[in-house]
Simulated assay, not measured.
Amino acid sequence: MDKFEKHITDLKSGKEIALAFFMDKYGDALNFFAYKIISDKQACAEIVSDAFVKLWQKRMDFTAIQPLQSFLYRVTQNACLDFLRTNKNKYKEDQSALLELEASDQDIMKKIIYNELVQLLVEEIKKLPKQQAAVIHLAIMEGKNTEEICQELNTSSSAVYFARSKAIATLRKIFEQKKLSLHLSLFLAMCTS
């Protein structure tokens, strides 16, 4: 029995430690996923918390990790769509953006794979020196530009450029060792451009 099967069994038997395991495993990735849709940190935190409450309520329905993972992403996506619909004046989302988000199961699997790559990235970002981690987190995870990062960290643009360059170089090296360099390079290029 692998660790996921054990945690699913524990979840089904009502052990809260199993729920904590899945929260640790998927919480950051789900927050990132939700933030990319609605760009509201507080709402994202509530949406992800609600997703885990729903997981707990439906815990008897899961026997494998894939359906559980898909469930979490689908619940999070649907809650984000509901949030955008109820706040459409505030966020001025057009109907085409909402329709694009109403994805098929195949599209949700692509998003899960993308977010698993993000999760790997988050784990490695946490290991970077403090300044590099802060800069790369703000740039990639929150989508902030250099000026916004300078203001938030109270630093110069040259310090931001240097920290970002060092962080990206370190991350590329780490992911080359993990044989993920092409995927990460594409991801980093997409996020930092």
Rank of each mutant, 00 (worst) to 15 (best):
A29V: 09
N31Y: 08
N31C: 09
F32R: 07
F33K: 03
A34V: 01
A34N: 02
Y35H: 03
Y35T: 00
K36T: 12
I38L: 04
I38E: 02
I38A: 06
S39P: 00
S39H: 15
D40G: 03
K41E: 12
Q42A: 14
Q42V: 14
C44A: 07
C44F: 05
E46R: 12
V48G: 02
V48E: 05
V48M: 05
S49C: 07
S49P: 01
D50T: 09
D50G: 11
D50A: 11
A51C: 07
F52M: 06
K54A: 14
L55H: 02
L55Y: 04
W56A: 01
W56M: 01
Q57E: 13
Q57H: 06
K58R: 13
K58V: 00
R59F: 02
R59Q: 04
M60Q: 15
M60F: 09
M60G: 07
D61S: 15
F62G: 01
F62I: 00
T63Y: 12
T63I: 11
I65K: 15
Q66D: 15
Q66Y: 13
L68Y: 02
Q69T: 15
Q69Y: 01
S70G: 08
S70K: 12
L72C: 04
Y73D: 06
Y73M: 05
R74E: 12
V75I: 14
N78T: 07
N78A: 07
A79L: 11
C80P: 03
L84W: 08
T86W: 05
N87Q: 13
N87W: 06
K88Y: 14
K88P: 00
K88C: 09
N89K: 15
K90W: 08
K90I: 12
Y91T: 04
E93K: 14
E93W: 13
D94M: 07
D94E: 13
D94P: 05
D94H: 12
Q95L: 15
S96D: 13
S96K: 12
L98W: 08
L98A: 05
L101S: 04
L101D: 04
E102W: 04
A103E: 08
A103H: 11
D105N: 11
Q106E: 14
D107V: 06
D107P: 00
I108P: 02
I108Y: 03
I108M: 12
I108F: 02
M109Y: 11
M109D: 14
K110F: 13
K111T: 00
K111A: 10
I112F: 03
I113G: 01
N115G: 09
E116T: 09
L117K: 06
V118Q: 00
V118M: 08
V118H: 01
V118F: 06
Q119M: 09
Q119N: 13
L121W: 00
L121V: 02
V122R: 07
V122C: 02
V122E: 03
V122N: 02
